[in-house]
Amino acid sequence: PEPFSGGPSVPELILQLLQLEPEEDQVRARIVGCLQEPAKGRPDQPAPFSLLCRMADQTFISIVDWARRCMVFKELEVADQMTLLQNCWSELLVFDHIYRQVQYGKEGSILLVTGQEVELSVVASQAGSLLHSLVLRAQELVLQLHALQLDRQEFVCLKFLILLSLDVKFLNNHSLVKDAQEKANAALLDYTLCHYPHCGDKFQQLLLCLVEVRALSVQAKEYLYHKHLGNEMPRNNLLIEMLQAKQT
């Protein structure tokens, strides 16, 4: 611990990631602004669903913008940046949603990036069974992370870990990414041990939650693909474009 401080210090990496993290109200304002522009939509699609798809697209754009500003990531050549994002885009979207619920959500409803609240009973009655089960599964993870007391420091570090979570053999710059993966893991371990000494193995439990984030993201991609096959997605949807790209 630093002298004259009120408690244990926060690893430098996490402090840097906190600086890069946009405020929720800034993200909300930008996305709400984008959604107010009329879309060249499909009149055959229900307006709320079309709006949700555009909202997800805009959230994706925010996430890429964040990644571009991240240390290490911004040093990589574009080919490596693309490989990393093609690997983790859906996990980052899922984790963004999850953390919003942990941080700002209320029991019995989900909070969208626009600030709108949707009652779970409405999801149950209006959404199809696939989306409903996805939302419920996500809510279980929200409860778990709530119980673990996931904080903003851990959130930004876990997001960074997700961004870099690819075997470096698929990249051109092995050493830069491997080094960053190790530093991020060490920072998270250090932080959880210092700040939650009573929690025992918070570090391990958080990493296990990332396994569930990955599983949820696979289920989310399957849902998107199902909607795409049923010709239910808006034209030029960015997530479908990401889904259809060849992955490593």
Binding site: L85, M242, A245, K246, Q247
Partner: peptide, 23 residues
């Protein structure tokens, strides 16, 4: 949906390229 070379999504190329504007 359009794709860049080698299965790269064009949107990702646009967002990551300093010289192109995102849609």
């Amino acid at each position: 949906p359009c794709q860049g070379p080698v299965g790269r999504p064009a949107i990702l190329q646009a967002l990551l390229s300093p010289s192109l504007r995102a849609r």
